[in-house]
């Protein structure tokens, strides 16, 4: 059987969504960002919301997310994405507004914006990608870097007594009254990606229905920053990262479940 014989419409089982552009992604092989971008854009596509969607990109590895996501996007200053999303949603309440942020962006420099956006209950979807390291700037310590983990700025391992403990900001914002749903996911297995997509769909529906802030953390590996092969990075994540940042629902429909 030749390639041309296989490439027929009736054999098509999977197609790239048109909500991802054809631009070649700059992410390292093994990085979770591409998968998370795809999951988000596939759901927006399936829900027919391209013309109603405005996204906010962060500063960090996904700073160029706007080049890949085929929806209207704004680039925020480092950490300010929730402030941008607040204004967009307030000025155009009928739109679907999301932020896409990393751990340095959302949980360090943008902590104030994150907490106050959630506390106001801005009806947006926040996607928080936690890879426990600053990838773009070359692997420095993040607020979510695990205890003992070696990075460029914690070369002898994170000493929690000197620099504090890895911050579970997701658990911090969950009890806020304005927050409607909070869950933690991964993308290191196909089943996990499907689970993430279901959470994204619910988050879009609920934020569009003005229930409150919907917050999804995705633990993602950074094999370049962790200096592991992609396969080993996923293993290391399952064994170490997910021990501390435990996946699952934290708040469902306004009720704490953990």
């Amino acid at each position: 059987m030749t390639l041309n014989e296989i490439c027929k419409p009736e054999n098509l089982v999977y197609k790239k969504t048109s909500l991802l552009t054809d631009k070649v992604m700059h992410y390292c092989p093994g990085c979770g960002h591409g998968t998370i971008h795809r999951a988000l854009m596939e759901v927006v596509d399936e829900m027919g919301l391209q013309d109603k969607t405005i996204g906010v990109a962060p500063v960090g590895c996904s700073v160029l997310a706007y080049d890949y996501m085929n929806v209207d996007m704004q680039e925020a200053a480092h950490g300010r994405a929730p402030a941008l999303a607040t204004a967009i949603k307030r000025l155009m309440p009928e739109k679907f507004v999301f932020t896409y942020q990393g751990d340095g962006d959302l949980a360090a420099i943008g902590t104030a914006e994150t907490i106050h956006c959630c506390n106001r209950g801005e009806p947006i979807l926040m996607i928080f990608v936690n890879n426990a390291i600053y990838g773009m700037t070359g692997g420095q310590m993040a607020p979510t870097t695990l205890e003992g983990m070696k990075t460029a700025t914690s070369p002898y391992g994170r000493d929690v007594h000197k620099v504090g403990w890895p911050l579970r900001i997701t658990e911090m914002i969950a009890p806020l009254n304005g927050v409607w749903s909070v869950s933690r996911h991964t993308v290191h297995t196909p089943a996990a990606v499907q689970k993430l997509k279901r959470a994204i769909k619910k988050g879009i529906e609920d934020s569009m229905a003005h229930k409150g802030t919907c917050f999804i953390e995705v633990c993602s590996s950074c094999n370049s920053g962790w200096k592991l092969s992609p396969v080993d990075a996923n293993k290391w994540m399952a064994e170490h990262v997910l021990e501390y940042f435990v996946p699952g629902d934290i708040k469902v429909d306004g009720q704490m479940v953990r």
């Binding site: 704004q74 925020a76 200053a77 402030a83 607040t86």
Partner: peptide, 16 residues
């Protein structure tokens, strides 16, 4: 919550 936030809200509104 701060002037940092308010000017970034202005950025986003202007971008709309």
């Amino acid at each position: 919550e701060s002037e940092v936030s308010s000017i970034n809200m202005v950025y986003a509104g202007a971008a709309c």
